[in-house]
Design a binder for these strands. Structure first.
Lengths: 236, 236
DNA sequence: GCAGCGACTTGCACTATGTTCAAGTGAACG
DNA sequence: CGTTCACTTGAACATAGTGCAAGTCGCTGC
């Protein structure tokens, strides 16, 4: 930024220009805070201390900026040693880490629905995922299928929490009385659930919204999936 | 609609007003054709033969309309007999049907990321899903976890094809030369993949985009997941 | 040291789109 | 025949992505 807001006027500084990295970092921060629909170029420009349109010179378009941000966050995933004695340890670590990342950045799954992400960050992840399943003993196409099975399972699991987080942010942004709206929505959900026998039976046991889905459902499912894959491994 | 477009002029008819059902049906058609971002109220109004703003009286807002459409499509899923001798048959049927529905309506997963869908249509589905896993022998919370495991697996699997479909529609809408852009994107994806050993090894085997993910990956994964669950069933 | 060039920034303005609102319009009912 | 209520309409406003032409800054070659 070549100017800083100080008490309402701009003080000139030795010029240092925006960088793409800086912009992507700021975009991710805004996305985390306000969700995909909450990101707008004018707010981003303000955060960066420059005009909204300056960003365009560096990233071309908002869509491209989102693509860049969407790829960047894949670098947050740590890659476990693929040659552990127990491949399930590595597989579980990567799946859990991915789940956590997707929960940290709920907008990523929204972006995934709209843009195809295939940058270096995701490639780095995908490649290492394959390493783990190949080291486990899955050969050729079987490694792809095993990796895809766990990967898609994790994506699907993160969808619920991500949707809940996005909804919350959206309401807080648009709705003057977000808490009341959320309460109303949950009441309505319970009213609907009450009309179906098995859902009704669960109304008292656990609350009806996704954000309350207990974390152990993910771990339960993940271990079941890995069991199913391990059985196939024995048959190879 | 109270008027019909005939050769460019409007012919008045005995008044029949818009219905919410009509609007939702038209919205689903537009969403299927143009994707979530392609739906706009003016186009919807035009398709319905009325002013864009007439829709608001019936559905309140675009968000609400999307929520209505998002719930409606769940009714397309057929509910298999939960008391089949082999529970896996019913479970597989429902999962496969859901996968097909999500592929037919790629915008649904996008909407799922932005809005929480919990209408009667999804409740009907969820309730029946529980019926199947309870009939299979999963008791109490185990039925929820088993159902959620398969359900989220299917969601995650549909995400790839849905993203590809959305992207294609988006490009066709915005880009004058969509085919070229798609080709460029795939070339770029291959360039990136070439920098990672395991992805590079696969470059010639199968193409790098999601739409080409073979259908058998879904079936492979689904059966693996069901295997993992069945093993738990034996231990109950 | 200065002219010019290229890298970046800016404000303006255009466009598309969700939405509000006040005014209408038609059908049914008393 | 008039009132009412259910709907429809067109104009208008706000927001947000983005193209464009005109800057501004620093470096480079003369």
């Amino acid at each position: 930024m070549n100017a800083v807001q100080v008490d309402g006027y701009r003080e000139s500084m030795p010029r240092d220009t925006l960088t793409r990295e800086q912009i992507v970092t700021a975009a991710i921060a805004l996305l985390d805070a306000d969700g995909l629909e909450g990101l707008n170029m004018r707010a981003l420009g303000e955060r960066l201390g420059s005009a909204a349109t300056a960003v365009y010179w560096h990233v071309g378009s908002k869509d491209n900026l989102i693509a860049l941000a969407s790829d960047q966050v894949w670098h947050e995933i740590t890659l476990p040693d693929p040659d552990l004695v127990n491949w399930r340890t590595a597989a579980t670590a990567m799946a859990t880490d991915l789940y956590a990342m997707l929960t940290r950045h709920p907008w990523l799954l929204q972006a995934f629905g709209s843009f195809l992400m295939s940058g270096p960050g995701k490639a780095r992840h995908d490649d290492h995922l394959l390493a783990i399943y190949e080291a486990a003993g899955f050969a050729g196409a079987a490694a792809d299928q095993a990796a895809a099975t766990v990967f898609t399972f994790v994506l699907g699991n993160a969808l619920g929490p991500a949707a809940a987080a996005s909804l919350t942010r959206k309401l807080r942004r648009e709705d003057s009385d977000a808490e009341q709206t959320i309460r109303d929505t949950m009441t309505e959900a319970r009213r609907i659930a009450a009309q179906f026998p098995r859902l009704r039976a669960r109304l008292d046991t656990h609350s009806a919204d996704y954000s309350a889905a207990p974390d152990n459902t993910f771990q339960f499912g993940l271990q079941a999936v890995l069991d199913g894959l391990e059985a196939r491994l024995g048959a190879m």
